[in-house]
Amino acid sequence: MSETILTPHESLAIIQKVVNSTRQDYHIQRKFYILWGILIAVASFTQYAILNNYISLAWYFPWIFFPSIGLILSLFWGISGKKTTLSYYNHFVLTMWFTLYIAMGISLYISLFYQNSPFPSILVCVGIGTSISGFMMKNRLFILCGILFGIGAIYCLYLPFQQQLLLNGACMLIGNVMPNLISQHV
């Protein structure tokens, strides 16, 4: 079988074309971000309902029940999911979110220890992750949503705890679930 031999100009053109056109966001598992955004929002709204006596459950119930659902589904999806092309972008984003989840867990523990509200620090962590993802993808929507989380974190400081729950839930839906849903269908 005869092969096309490339000239240096053609070679350079192929390399430039391929590198520019190769998608860097191969198979981003947006369902994980959507799932966790919804679960944290629902947990926040449920705790608000509990604190206002709309539902009679222990105050900590939503923070055990909904994250457990998230963990089980994430493990199931992770194990059953196909191994696909992993871009360096995706690898970085996955590592970054893993680190941020650990940071959120630690800040939650610190907040409980000092009996402070954990929401400002959680919103900051999610905001950092969303903004960096936006800058990496060159996606303005994600950058704006990251800024929204930052504003939400500062605004949280001026709100009573119960309203912080509503703000946290709203930020998760608008800043996390919405951009991932939109990007999934683009």
Partner: peptide, 16 residues
């Protein structure tokens, strides 16, 4: 120095 092989190698350099 062949179009498909060069394209494949260029892609593989950008992904893990």
């Amino acid at each position: 120095n062949s179009p498909v092989r060069l394209a494949v190698m260029s892609i593989l350099l950008t992904v893990k």
